[in-house]
Design a binder for these strands. Structure first.
Lengths: 135, 135
DNA sequence: TCAGTTGCGTTATGCTATAACGTGTGTCAT
DNA sequence: ATGACACACGTTATAGCATAACGCAACTGA
């Protein structure tokens, strides 16, 4: 029932993302893992694919970058029980806040249902300035 | 008061996007405009930048592609009076529906206000299957 | 034992976007 | 008019993001 353990590459990539306080591009991850034997982008992308499947990592479409899921409580990442994830991205300090909003989810679901559109994945990203950077 | 006329390159790019029934990448636009003298990606990107500024074109972050704004009534594109734009993107036929939802806008605004986050640009993209393709 | 699946490593390639340079043209205050 | 400025344009080169296609190794389950 429980998901199989992470492979070595998957763990390495996930650790790098978890330790980072800002999103990382695949190539940045690659550079951070060269000393662990990574040589090629595909090693990173393949690990990311699996981590994305599990919901342990999110992709920020507007940045072409990746973050570890903020819900580090195990239940969340294993049984990705929440709906759509939204992100607030500070364009100054790079910090990202992940959040969920049921009202927004519900509203978009309604829209889709009315149009008979079948959602597969929804992206919500707010770019702007965080409190600290708005000065 | 009224915005200056489009330049030749801007018009060419906008026309290509307007005529397309699916999003186009910058390089696809470039290919379609080679016979009009376009030679380099920058010619396309520079035109797109201006069109994006005016709200006449939208960028789909999850596709790295561009669409003409669906509100072709002039008032909309000149005085971009609406709030955040959302998109439903069919992954089968490529068709994109643009829509606005005040409730969603308002909800995200509330979230930002509470966090003292200053939104600059918000991306909402639903990828899935349209009614026709869900079969 | 053999077929199927999954992960891995490597090389090569393709797609997306911008940097940095110089040119021409218009505006407008002097 | 002239010089300063802004802006669009064209070109070459380069940076940054992502995947195709090959082959090998390990595991799993008939």
């Amino acid at each position: 029932m429980t998901a199989p353990a992470l492979t070595k590459n998957q763990s390495l990539v996930f650790d790098v993302l978890s330790r980072s306080d800002a999103p990382l591009s695949a190539y940045t991850i690659l550079d951070k893992l060269r000393e662990h034997g990574f040589r090629a982008p595909l090693q990173v992308y393949r690990a990311l694919d699996k981590l994305l499947e599990r919901g342990m990592v999110h992709r920020l479409e507007s940045l072409n970058a990746f973050v570890a899921c903020a819900h580090q409580e195990k239940e969340c990442c294993v049984g990705h029980g929440h709906g759509t994830v939204a992100f607030a991205i500070c364009e100054s300090c790079g910090h990202v806040v992940e959040f969920h909003d049921h009202a927004v989810d519900h509203r978009l679901d309604d829209w889709a249902r009315q149009r008979k559109f079948k959602p597969a994945k929804t992206t919500i990203e707010i770019r702007g300035l965080c409190d600290a950077c708005a000065a």
